[in-house]
Design a protein around this nucleic acid. Sequence first.
DNA 1: ACGATGATGAAC
DNA 2: TTCATCATCGTA
Length: 182
Amino acid sequence: MRKILSKTFFQRNTLAVARELLGKFLVRKIGKREIAGIITDVEAYDGLNDKASHASRGKTKRNEVMFRAGGVWYVYCVYGMYEMLNIVTREKGYPSAILIRGVLADDVLYKKTNGPGKLTKFFCIKRSLNENQAQKNSGLWIEDRGIKIKNFLRGKRIGIDYAGAWKHRLWRFYIMVEIAKI
DNA sequence: ACGATGATGAAC
DNA sequence: TTCATCATCGTA
Protein backbone atom coordinates (compact mmCIF):
# COMPACT_ATOMS: atom_id res chain seq x y z
CA MET A 1 0.00 0.00 0.00
CA ARG A 2 1.30 3.38 -1.05
CA LYS A 3 -0.90 6.43 -0.75
CA ILE A 4 0.41 9.99 -0.97
CA LEU A 5 -1.17 12.10 1.77
CA SER A 6 -3.41 14.80 0.29
CA LYS A 7 -4.27 18.33 1.38
CA THR A 8 -7.35 17.07 3.18
CA PHE A 9 -5.17 14.98 5.48
CA PHE A 10 -3.28 18.08 6.61
CA GLN A 11 -6.20 20.49 6.75
CA ARG A 12 -7.41 19.13 10.10
CA ASN A 13 -6.70 19.47 13.83
CA THR A 14 -2.93 19.93 14.14
CA LEU A 15 -2.46 17.60 17.11
CA ALA A 16 -4.40 14.84 15.37
CA VAL A 17 -2.33 15.24 12.23
CA ALA A 18 0.90 15.24 14.26
CA ARG A 19 -0.05 12.02 16.01
CA GLU A 20 -1.05 10.39 12.73
CA LEU A 21 2.20 11.37 11.00
CA LEU A 22 4.03 8.83 13.18
CA GLY A 23 4.61 5.78 11.00
CA LYS A 24 4.09 7.62 7.73
CA PHE A 25 6.94 7.80 5.22
CA LEU A 26 8.80 10.96 4.29
CA VAL A 27 9.84 10.55 0.66
CA ARG A 28 12.45 12.65 -1.14
CA LYS A 29 13.16 12.39 -4.86
CA ILE A 30 16.11 14.11 -6.49
CA GLY A 31 16.51 13.15 -10.14
CA LYS A 32 16.17 9.38 -10.27
CA ARG A 33 17.23 8.83 -6.70
CA GLU A 34 14.49 8.28 -4.15
CA ILE A 35 15.00 8.09 -0.41
CA ALA A 36 12.35 7.41 2.20
CA GLY A 37 12.10 7.04 5.95
CA ILE A 38 9.51 6.39 8.63
CA ILE A 39 8.54 9.48 10.59
CA THR A 40 9.34 8.86 14.27
CA ASP A 41 9.33 12.28 15.94
CA VAL A 42 7.19 15.39 15.39
CA GLU A 43 6.12 18.56 17.21
CA ALA A 44 2.92 20.58 16.74
CA TYR A 45 2.88 24.39 16.59
CA ASP A 46 -0.72 25.47 16.64
CA GLY A 47 -2.42 28.84 16.38
CA LEU A 48 -1.66 32.48 17.21
CA ASN A 49 -1.78 31.91 20.96
CA ASP A 50 0.96 29.29 21.01
CA LYS A 51 3.91 31.28 22.36
CA ALA A 52 6.35 28.68 21.06
CA SER A 53 5.19 29.21 17.48
CA HIS A 54 6.67 31.64 15.00
CA ALA A 55 3.10 32.78 14.39
CA SER A 56 2.59 33.99 17.98
CA ARG A 57 3.66 37.54 17.10
CA GLY A 58 1.54 37.76 13.98
CA LYS A 59 2.26 37.32 10.31
CA THR A 60 5.76 38.12 9.05
CA LYS A 61 7.58 37.52 5.81
CA ARG A 62 9.09 34.32 7.21
CA ASN A 63 6.02 32.72 8.80
CA GLU A 64 3.49 33.80 6.18
CA VAL A 65 3.35 30.26 4.80
CA MET A 66 2.07 29.01 8.16
CA PHE A 67 -1.12 30.99 7.50
CA ARG A 68 -1.80 29.19 4.23
CA ALA A 69 -4.03 26.19 3.69
CA GLY A 70 -2.44 22.96 4.96
CA GLY A 71 -0.38 20.68 2.77
CA VAL A 72 2.58 22.95 1.95
CA TRP A 73 6.10 22.87 3.36
CA TYR A 74 7.44 25.47 5.75
CA VAL A 75 11.24 25.39 5.68
CA TYR A 76 13.32 27.93 7.58
CA CYS A 77 16.86 28.36 8.88
CA VAL A 78 17.68 28.42 12.59
CA TYR A 79 20.96 29.19 14.38
CA GLY A 80 22.35 30.26 11.02
CA MET A 81 23.10 26.67 10.10
CA TYR A 82 20.16 24.30 10.23
CA GLU A 83 17.10 23.97 8.01
CA MET A 84 13.91 22.99 9.82
CA LEU A 85 11.23 21.03 7.95
CA ASN A 86 7.58 21.65 8.81
CA ILE A 87 4.32 20.68 7.14
CA VAL A 88 1.60 23.33 7.32
CA THR A 89 -1.77 22.24 8.73
CA ARG A 90 -5.34 23.55 9.08
CA GLU A 91 -7.28 25.85 6.78
CA LYS A 92 -6.17 29.10 5.20
CA GLY A 93 -5.84 31.90 7.78
CA TYR A 94 -5.10 29.58 10.74
CA PRO A 95 -1.32 29.53 11.41
CA SER A 96 -0.07 26.08 12.29
CA ALA A 97 2.57 23.57 11.30
CA ILE A 98 4.26 20.38 12.41
CA LEU A 99 8.03 20.17 12.80
CA ILE A 100 9.44 16.85 11.62
CA ARG A 101 12.22 16.03 14.06
CA GLY A 102 13.11 12.41 13.33
CA VAL A 103 12.94 9.87 10.55
CA LEU A 104 14.05 6.23 10.50
CA ALA A 105 15.38 5.20 7.11
CA ASP A 106 17.77 2.38 7.97
CA ASP A 107 20.13 1.63 10.84
CA VAL A 108 22.96 3.69 9.43
CA LEU A 109 20.89 6.62 8.26
CA TYR A 110 18.97 6.68 11.53
CA LYS A 111 22.04 7.90 13.33
CA LYS A 112 22.21 10.74 10.85
CA THR A 113 18.55 11.67 10.89
CA ASN A 114 17.87 11.67 14.63
CA GLY A 115 17.33 15.43 14.91
CA PRO A 116 15.61 18.04 12.76
CA GLY A 117 18.80 19.68 11.48
CA LYS A 118 20.41 16.38 10.56
CA LEU A 119 17.25 15.15 8.91
CA THR A 120 17.10 18.05 6.47
CA LYS A 121 20.81 17.81 5.76
CA PHE A 122 20.71 14.17 4.76
CA PHE A 123 17.46 14.48 2.81
CA CYS A 124 18.86 17.54 0.97
CA ILE A 125 16.00 19.74 2.14
CA LYS A 126 16.64 23.45 1.68
CA ARG A 127 14.67 26.64 1.89
CA SER A 128 13.96 26.43 -1.84
CA LEU A 129 11.30 23.89 -0.84
CA ASN A 130 9.52 26.47 1.30
CA GLU A 131 5.93 27.12 0.13
CA ASN A 132 5.98 24.04 -2.12
CA GLN A 133 3.17 21.49 -2.03
CA ALA A 134 3.90 18.18 -0.30
CA GLN A 135 3.35 16.32 -3.55
CA LYS A 136 5.50 14.54 -6.14
CA ASN A 137 6.06 17.63 -8.24
CA SER A 138 8.07 19.27 -5.44
CA GLY A 139 10.23 16.17 -4.89
CA LEU A 140 9.19 15.91 -1.24
CA TRP A 141 6.00 14.32 0.02
CA ILE A 142 4.55 11.97 2.67
CA GLU A 143 3.11 8.50 2.04
CA ASP A 144 0.95 6.11 3.99
CA ARG A 145 2.46 2.68 3.49
CA GLY A 146 0.13 0.89 5.87
CA ILE A 147 2.13 1.00 9.08
CA LYS A 148 -0.03 1.47 12.19
CA ILE A 149 1.61 2.91 15.29
CA LYS A 150 -0.09 1.54 18.39
CA ASN A 151 2.18 2.88 21.10
CA PHE A 152 3.75 6.31 21.05
CA LEU A 153 5.11 8.81 23.56
CA ARG A 154 4.18 12.41 24.24
CA GLY A 155 6.49 15.04 25.64
CA LYS A 156 7.34 18.72 25.84
CA ARG A 157 8.62 20.41 22.72
CA ILE A 158 12.38 20.90 22.44
CA GLY A 159 14.23 24.22 22.47
CA ILE A 160 11.36 26.53 23.35
CA ASP A 161 12.19 27.62 26.91
CA TYR A 162 11.11 31.15 25.99
CA ALA A 163 7.48 30.05 25.51
CA GLY A 164 6.26 30.56 29.08
CA ALA A 165 3.40 28.27 30.06
CA TRP A 166 3.23 26.90 26.54
CA LYS A 167 6.55 25.11 26.93
CA HIS A 168 4.81 22.56 29.14
CA ARG A 169 2.33 21.46 26.50
CA LEU A 170 2.82 17.85 25.49
CA TRP A 171 2.83 18.61 21.80
CA ARG A 172 5.76 16.41 20.85
CA PHE A 173 4.79 12.96 19.58
CA TYR A 174 7.44 10.31 19.08
CA ILE A 175 8.21 6.63 19.07
CA MET A 176 11.26 4.86 20.44
CA VAL A 177 13.04 2.60 18.00
CA GLU A 178 15.31 -0.20 19.13
CA ILE A 179 18.49 -0.08 17.09
CA ALA A 180 20.38 -3.29 16.49
CA LYS A 181 24.07 -2.96 17.18
CA ILE A 182 25.93 -2.35 13.94
C1' DA B 1 28.89 23.50 29.02
C1' DC B 2 29.70 26.10 25.10
C1' DG B 3 30.76 28.09 20.58
C1' DA B 4 29.59 28.10 15.66
C1' DT B 5 27.00 31.00 12.41
C1' DG B 6 23.66 34.00 9.85
C1' DA B 7 18.71 34.98 9.11
C1' DT B 8 15.06 37.27 11.41
C1' DG B 9 12.29 40.74 13.66
C1' DA B 10 11.98 44.55 16.66
C1' DA B 11 13.91 48.64 18.22
C1' DC B 12 15.99 52.95 17.26
C1' DT C 1 21.13 50.34 10.87
C1' DT C 2 22.04 47.81 14.90
C1' DC C 3 21.24 44.19 18.10
C1' DA C 4 19.46 40.24 20.69
C1' DT C 5 17.54 36.06 19.68
C1' DC C 6 17.15 31.54 17.89
C1' DA C 7 11.79 24.99 16.85
C1' DT C 8 20.39 22.89 16.71
C1' DC C 9 24.57 20.23 16.76
C1' DG C 10 29.30 18.67 17.59
C1' DT C 11 32.85 18.75 20.67
C1' DA C 12 34.33 18.60 25.44
